[in-house]
Structures are given as C-alpha cells and as structure tokens.
Amino acid sequence: MTNITSIVKSIQNIMRQDKGVNSDAQRIEQLGWMIFLKIFDDKDKELELIQNNYTSLIPAELKWKSNAG
C-alpha cells in the first residue's frame, strides 16, 4: 500500500506542470482544497442516502462530480 507522502508527492509532480501555480506552497494549498471538496461531496452523498429530504448546500454545477471528471 502506498503511503500518503508518496501520493502527495506524485500529485505535486503532476501539478508542477501547471503554469499557473508557482510554488509548492500554492500546490499544497490547492491540494488541500481539492481534498476538502472531495470529502464534502462524499458527505453529501451519504446524507442523501440517510435523510429523506436532504438538499445539498452546493449548487449542482459546483459539485465535485461536475468538475472532477
């Protein structure tokens, strides 16, 4: 099993190819934000399954599934 350090370094190497990001600090900040959004999306899915009238606070066009694939 791969550890989190090697996963983060692998993602950073991919992100280094983005011309709009200039430093590791920016890459880590963006990576943290992406992880937060993914976790929030997963929590939304869970709440949709367990609560009958659950409505997400995130508009459909801004959800993870609309932007990550």
Score class of each variant (00 low, 15 high):
Met1Phe: 14
Met1Thr: 12
Thr2Gly: 03
Thr2Ser: 10
Thr2His: 03
Thr2Ala: 14
Thr2Trp: 06
Asn3Arg: 05
Ile4Pro: 00
Thr5Trp: 00
Thr5Arg: 13
Thr5Val: 14
Ser6Lys: 10
Ser6Asp: 13
Val8His: 01
Lys9His: 02
Ser10Cys: 07
Ile11Phe: 06
Ile11Thr: 11
Gln12Leu: 13
Gln12Trp: 00
Asn13Gln: 10
Ile14His: 09
Ile14Asp: 11
Ile14Ala: 09
Met15Gly: 03
Met15Lys: 07
Arg16Val: 02
Asp18Phe: 03
Gly20Ala: 14
Gly20Cys: 09
Gly20Glu: 13
Val21Lys: 07
Val21Ile: 15
Val21Asp: 02
Asn22Glu: 12
Asn22Ser: 15
Ser23Ile: 08
Asp24Tyr: 10
Asp24Arg: 13
Asp24Ile: 15
Asp24Gly: 04
Ala25Arg: 15
Ala25Ser: 10
Ala25Asp: 06
Gln26Met: 10
Arg27Trp: 00
Arg27Phe: 04
Ile28Phe: 05
Ile28Ala: 09
Gln30Ala: 07
Gln30Glu: 10
Leu31Arg: 03
Leu31Cys: 06
Leu31Val: 08
Gly32Met: 13
Trp33Thr: 15
Met34Leu: 15
Met34Val: 05
Met34Gln: 07
Ile35Ser: 06
Phe36Asp: 06
Leu37Asn: 03
Ile39Phe: 03
Phe40Trp: 05
Asp42Lys: 12
Asp42Thr: 13
Asp42Val: 12
Asp42Gln: 08
Lys43Gly: 00
Lys43Leu: 15
Lys43Arg: 13
Asp44Leu: 05
Lys45Arg: 15
Lys45Met: 06
Glu46Ile: 14
Glu46Lys: 14
Glu46Phe: 11
Leu47Arg: 13
Leu47Trp: 12
Ile50His: 01
Ile50Ser: 12
Gln51Asp: 13
Gln51Trp: 08
Gln51Ile: 15
Tyr54Asn: 02
Thr55Met: 12
Thr55Ser: 12
Thr55Cys: 06
Ser56Thr: 15
Ser56His: 03
Leu57Asp: 06
Leu57Thr: 11
Leu57Ala: 14
Ile58Asn: 02
Ile58Glu: 01
Pro59Met: 04
Pro59Lys: 08
Pro59Asn: 01
Pro59Ala: 00
Ala60Ser: 14
Leu62Ser: 07
Leu62Tyr: 10
Leu62Met: 14
Lys63Cys: 03
Lys63Leu: 04
Trp64Leu: 06
Lys65Arg: 14
Lys65Thr: 11
Asn67Lys: 11
Asn67Gln: 11
Asn67Pro: 03
Asn67Tyr: 02
Gly69Glu: 06
Gly69Tyr: 05
Gly69Phe: 07
